[in-house]
């Protein structure tokens, strides 16, 4: 029965090998996996079957340090309110759990302006959108936290734009992720720094990767042009008592983005009196009262609330005064 028994044990061995595995990832088989190899021989000697196993050799898979960084923004992020959030993804493409040091550099060659990085945040609630007060902002020296092999993390770089930036100016911010264990030329080894005390080896990415996020400054400008037409009581245009002055204010908004709460006010010149019910906006009459419509006129001046106004839009306001 020797032969039968050895055959059974060979099958059992096969089963145990098949079970003793770790999942393979993009970064390869998990660090710390033990690869065992045992060969079995069966044979006959003078018709008597025999079988023998070899010694089992075991090698441990060391940790490969690799990372990729990509920008998740579809294009340049508008920074029209003076701040912006750039979104990146960090993926551990190595084969062991690893944390990454994150560095955002706003000084990129070719920038029209350099933004100021005010923080790097982790997408704590995993919704892909920066939620102030919810997503954790990394403190000085903090790293990404440990990422499992193949795991990705969404990271936000929070920036502000400096003053003096022109509309449409472009800027880039470079986010770098460095393996905390170490970086270097591919093949660089960190003895004992890997999983289960194995070595950690720098992979093809150098255990460091970076990606650029783009910003475009949206600077909105309001341009006001005021003109006056005079109609005197005698059919001329002399500024004499009783003459009517029609003031025209053209408010033109230029630039990328929009401006909020745009309000145009104008005081009547000394020696003139407002001519009731002459206030208009874009050709439509506004009541003088402070009511639901956008405008009002009182004893000293007019006020028209244009509200949120996007670049490229212009409005025309007119009103009449009479020279006293």
């Amino acid at each position: 029965m020797t032969y039968v028994r050895s055959l059974v044990s060979a099958i059992a061995l096969t089963g145990s090998v098949a079970l003793a595995t770790s999942p393979a990832h993009a970064g390869g088989i998990d660090a710390g996996t033990l690869i065992e190899n045992t060969a079995t021989a069966t044979y006959d000697v003078n018709g008597t079957p025999g079988s023998v196993d070899s010694n089992t050799i075991t090698i441990r898979v060391d940790e490969l340090l690799d990372v990729t960084v990509t920008s998740l923004d579809g294009g340049a992020v508008p920074a029209d309110s003076g701040s912006a959030v750039l979104t990146f993804s960090i993926t551990n493409t190595g084969n062991g759990p690893e944390a990454f040091q994150l560095t955002a550099d706003p000084s990129v060659a070719g920038n029209d302006f350099d933004a100021t990085v005010t923080g790097i945040a982790i997408d704590t609630n995993g919704n892909g959108i920066y939620d102030e007060g919810v997503d954790t902002i990394l403190g000085a020296g903090d790293n990404s936290g440990e990422l499992a092999p193949d795991a990705s993390l969404t990271v936000f770089v929070l920036v502000t734009t400096p003053g003096g930036v022109s509309d449409g100016d472009n800027s880039q911010v470079n986010l770098t992720a460095d393996a905390v264990t170490g970086t270097g030329a591919p093949g660089t080894a960190f003895a004992g720094a890997g999983v289960d005390g194995g070595d950690a080896i720098v992979g093809l990415t150098g255990a460091s990767n970076d990606a650029l996020g783009s910003l475009i400054a949206g600077v909105v400008t309001v341009n006001l042009v005021k003109s006056a037409d005079i109609a005197d009581p005698f059919g001329g245009n002399q500024p004499v008592p009783g003459a009517i002055i029609t003031y025209r204010i053209v408010a033109t908004v230029t630039g990328t983005g929009s401006i909020d709460d745009l309000t145009i006010t104008d005081a009547y010149p000394t020696g003139t009196t407002y001519r009731p019910t002459t206030l208009t906006l874009d050709g439509g009459t506004l009541t003088d009262a402070d009511d639901a419509d956008a405008g009002k006129a009182d004893a000293t001046g007019i006020e028209v609330l244009l509200g949120t106004t996007t670049g490229g839009v212009s409005h025309t306001i007119t009103f009449d005064v009479v020279i006293d």
Binding site: L13, T21, A41, V61
Partner: peptide
């Protein structure tokens, strides 16, 4: 040994890694 071994078969399972 002193005798020839016949029908000599060596089987080596591959580790899944």
């Amino acid at each position: 040994g002193a005798e020839p071994a016949t029908n000599f078969v060596v089987t080596n399972p591959l580790h899944k890694a």
